[in-house]
Design a protein around this nucleic acid. Structure first.
Lengths: 178, 178
DNA sequence: CAACGTTGTGTACGCTCGTACACATGGGAT
DNA sequence: ATCCCATGTGTACGAGCGTACACAACGTTG
């Protein structure tokens, strides 16, 4: 039969899960939908991921890594003389202006930790990593506050459909930086 | 048969839905679970709420009203001479220290707007109302930023299980207030 | 080269779900 | 008094779900 012997089977299932969540949300995620999307039989998804939580953990971790890679590759947050608030505001604008599906995907996985304790360590890791990255440019308390404020601003845009206002974001981010 | 003629049937179903979401999350909400919780037949829930989204809208609206009532009754945010940042930080601490189920309930309904456009107007209304309330003590831009920052701080606590630090919250909230 | 364990496959069971629909009931308009 | 329609009830259907399990294939180890 086809594709016996598939060393990247597991990875392909994770990729498929991310696509499914992006398109239909976590509510549309099941062993079956993932199996169909990854073009593997049902038994294969249940073999590699006993529970959907396991699969979500893998998906969130991978999404975080992809995100971190994008940030790092852009070389952002490196120049100590740049205006940090403007840099962050511009970066949020770019992100929010992109494909809404991708943004929703990231946030949906992240917010799912509210009800799924299994995801919390991964969510915590993500918040910690981002704050740590910001710490190169400011102190730890400010870094945490910036993460919180950026989260809040993004959520307001996503939940209420108020358009993103970069000037406003820059202004209030700047206030947090001492 | 029993309970024909139940003018508060609809309201009881909403109350039941809120209890169900509080206990099992939105994932555990179905016409059937609500019907069981409200002690009404299945057909009754589908009659009053054609879709689960309709039911969620009603639930979120009611949760918001309850929350607003609590704020108003505490007479908070009225004294123009009080330290606003300290007031807000203390109030968040009180809220987060309470029953985690209730906090999760509110946020889960609120965040559900990310994937359910039907909920966005209600979420937007909530954010607008809170910002408006804060506007009595500061300008509109600051009010919006405070809402965002409070949301972000609460989320960090809820998603990452980092304990709430009232001093930190007061400090960064104060920075946002010009 | 043989035994073994990991990985992959196919199918079936029992459950819950949204939806639909036929029928019952009784308040309020006429 | 009568009719209408909003409201309430019970049941059934088909679909999708997680889970379990027997069996197949194959690399690895001894």
């Amino acid at each position: 039969m086809a594709r016996r012997y598939d060393p990247e089977r597991r990875q392909r299932i994770i990729d498929a899960a991310i696509r499914v969540v992006g398109e239909k949300g976590i509510a549309g995620l099941s062993h079956r939908t993932v199996a169909a999307e990854a073009d593997v039989p049902l038994g294969s998804t249940t073999y590699h991921f006993k529970t959907l939580d396991d699969l979500l953990v893998a998906a969130l971790r991978q999404a975080n890594e992809g995100f971190a890679k994008v940030i790092a590759s852009r070389g952002a947050l490196e120049d100590p003389h740049a205006d940090l608030a403007a840099e962050l505001a511009g970066w949020m604008g770019e992100w929010l202006a992109g494909d809404r599906t991708g943004v929703e995907l990231e946030y949906e996985l992240y917010l799912a930790a509210l009800r799924r304790p299994a995801l919390r360590p991964v969510a915590a890791e993500w918040a910690r990593d981002l704050a740590e990255r910001l710490s190169r440019r400011t102190d730890a308390v400010t870094a945490r506050a910036l993460v919180a404020l950026m989260d809040g601003i993004c959520l307001q845009v996503l939940l209420t459909e108020v358009p993103y206002d970069e000037g406003y974001a820059r202004e209030v981010l700047a206030r947090v930086i001492p």
